[in-house]
Amino acid sequence: MVIRKFAAIDIGSNAIRLLINNVIEQKDRPTLFKKSELVRVPVRLGEDAFLRGAISDISLKRLIKTMQSFDLLMQVYGVEKYMACATSALRDAKNGREIIERIQQESNIKIEIIDGKREAEIITSTDLKDVIKTDRLYLYVDVGGGSTEFTIFDKGAPVLSRSFEIGTVRILNNLVTETVWDDIKSWIISHIGQDRQLEIIGSGGNINKLHKMSGRKIGQPLSYIWLNAQYHFLNSMDYEDRIAELGLNQDRADVIIPATKIFLNAAKWSRAKKIHVPKIGLADGMIKTLYYQEA
């Protein structure tokens, strides 16, 4: 048995994550990927990028300190390879390229800014065999702060993906028009058809939190009915009460409502009654991508 350590850094619009995985190689057995550590830092880059068009000096300082700490953690854990990807916020920021150059100088972390298509490709490289059945149609929905990736799975394989500029931070700041919602609705309806039963696979920190709040066991899907009731319940509470009474983090208590709205609309337009929550996403896909690139 050989145990190797790989890491993924996901620089999103609402938060930054470091995922460290143990990759267990055994002779004549499938390679196993086990989460060793997950660190999440609430640096909301999206508000800078989407409202002001550039990352501010204050956010840059926090970002550099975060990357420096991630570099140290990877050294302590003995990570042999890492992959760092920035998504919607740094894609949109006019100083995005300058930011990643500065980070590399200050922290030695090399970052790749990926577009929506590449983001969807990485996400769908995750291991979904325990969720996806080959006789069903699925819509994979990954909700981020700045963008949402939709992927249709048929016969167990991804057949079509689309990234839309809609996310929790954009919605909170009133940056999403009805036209975007209409485009998503049209895309889903035109590619799903009317005669196929479909289920949703949800990805992202908000749907993971909703699943935990539901009290359901791992592997047990959420229902559309429960999600709709939970949306109205959360929407009826003040921001402060969501923190004090529900125990939500400050940077989760606001974005969880627009995230729920995206999932609800996706389910309504696709006529899905179940939302599976395997708790895997971009960072997991980055680990798999990194590992199999060298295989």
Rank of each mutant, 00 (worst) to 15 (best):
M1Y: 11
V2H: 07
R4V: 09
K5I: 03
F6P: 00
F6H: 06
S13D: 08
S13P: 11
S13I: 08
N14Q: 04
A15D: 09
R17Q: 11
I24E: 12
Q26C: 02
Q26W: 04
K27A: 14
D28G: 07
T31V: 10
K34I: 14
V39H: 06
V39Q: 07
V41C: 08
F50T: 08
R52I: 13
G53S: 13
A54G: 03
A54C: 10
S59C: 10
K61W: 03
I64G: 01
K65D: 15
K65F: 05
Q68C: 11
F70P: 08
D71G: 13
D71S: 15
L73W: 02
Y77E: 13
G78L: 04
Y82R: 09
A86Y: 07
L90E: 14
R91D: 06
A93S: 06
K94I: 13
K94H: 13
G96Q: 03
R97V: 11
R97L: 12
R97P: 09
I99C: 09
I103K: 00
Q104D: 07
Q105D: 12
E106Y: 01
N108W: 08
E112Q: 15
I113A: 14
K117T: 12
R118Q: 14
R118I: 14
E119Q: 09
I123T: 12
I123Y: 03
T124L: 14
T126I: 08
K129F: 10
K129D: 15
V131R: 06
R136I: 00
L137E: 04
D142G: 05
G144T: 02
G145D: 01
G146M: 01
E149G: 13
F150P: 00
T151I: 15
G156N: 05
A157R: 15
V169R: 00
N174L: 06
T177P: 05
T177M: 10
E178F: 07
V180C: 02
V180E: 06
D183G: 01
D183R: 04
I184N: 02
R196T: 05
R196P: 00
Q197L: 09
I201D: 04
G205Q: 04
G205C: 05
I207E: 02
N208S: 10
L210H: 01
K212T: 05
M213N: 03
S214R: 03
S214T: 10
G215H: 05
I218C: 00
G219R: 08
G219N: 09
P221I: 05
L222Q: 11
W226A: 09
F233M: 05
N235W: 01
S236V: 03
Y239S: 13
E240A: 07
D241V: 07
D241Q: 13
G247C: 12
L248D: 07
R252G: 10
A253I: 05
A259D: 14
T260S: 13
K261M: 11
F263D: 06
A266P: 01
A267H: 00
A267I: 03
S270M: 02
R271Q: 14
K274W: 04
K274T: 11
P278C: 09
I280R: 00
A283G: 12
A283N: 10
M286K: 10
K288L: 13
K288V: 08
K288A: 09
Y291R: 06
Y291S: 05
Y292E: 13
E294F: 01
A295T: 11
